[in-house]
Write a protein that binds this DNA or RNA. Structure first.
Lengths: 130, 130
DNA sequence: CGACGACATTGACCTCAGTCGATGGCTGGG
DNA sequence: CCCAGCCATCGACTGAGGTCAATGTCGTCG
């Protein structure tokens, strides 16, 4: 296989970009579009909301296949996309794999899109990104 | 064909949805993904930032083809996608067509993604959406 | 009124992304 | 020690989307 597990939290590079203040470069636009493409899918949007609304803030694959009406490989694929984009975290406990929201990741994307600089206490306290 | 030109300002239906509070329905996710798919493209992201940063907050097609390095039909196509998504407004004055940001549209999307309810003064005063 | 320029539309090509069935790896239980 | 269940990966199919050349439409100017 050619590609290996490059860490690349793509959301990090797209952070703190005003978007409406000055023209984006081709690189910045490509980075930001990568994260947005990960979110711009109905199945993945529902996955994000399902995980976030689940008890404890995390859910396993078996909890997600039914509400989405998709096959298990498809759900696993979408979860991998979200994890690679830096939006979800994956933790394997025993047989089950638990997925949870990465704190501040969605807020970082929201900050980029917002015409105002930064929401009051949204991505606040996330120095790993900004 | 089945689908016709429904006006559908898709951003309106996707407004005010917490996303992390309760699971999205298939309909809500489809609506929201439509708007996000419009933004999740490097060329369109650069178009948004170019228009926003342009003098007067509006720009015509001839101002946008060069910085993007894309052909005129392609730029026109991307602009149409953004207009259909409710993110850009199009006003034809004489021979030129001027495009400008729809106020509050990007902030509405940012609100949906943000884990906190609403940024302080972002989409504030946009009763057409919320 | 004829030519030019700005923009939109069409048609076609090509690449990529979403989906599923089948299979493999791994862990826990009998 | 073997079996059962959860999850990831693979391969293939299909549809959607980005891009451009060519063409059409409309307003402007000489």
């Amino acid at each position: 296989m050619s590609v290996d597990v490059l860490p690349s939290p793509t959301v990090a590079t797209a952070c703190c970009a005003p978007l409406v203040r000055q023209p984006l470069s081709a690189e910045e636009a490509a980075d930001l579009s990568r994260v947005l493409k990960a979110i711009a899918d109905p199945a993945r949007l529902r996955l994000l909301s399902l995980v976030a609304a689940h008890a404890g803030g995390e859910a396993c694959v078996c909890d997600l296949t039914e509400p989405l009406g998709l096959s298990q490989p498809t759900v696993s694929h979408h979860l991998k996309v979200l994890v690679d984009a830096g939006l979800l975290s994956r933790e394997k406990r025993g047989v089950w794999a638990y997925f949870g929201l990465v704190p501040g990741a969605l807020d970082a994307v929201a900050n980029v899109l917002s015409t105002t600089g930064a929401p009051a206490g949204a991505a606040d306290g996330q120095p790993s990104f900004c």
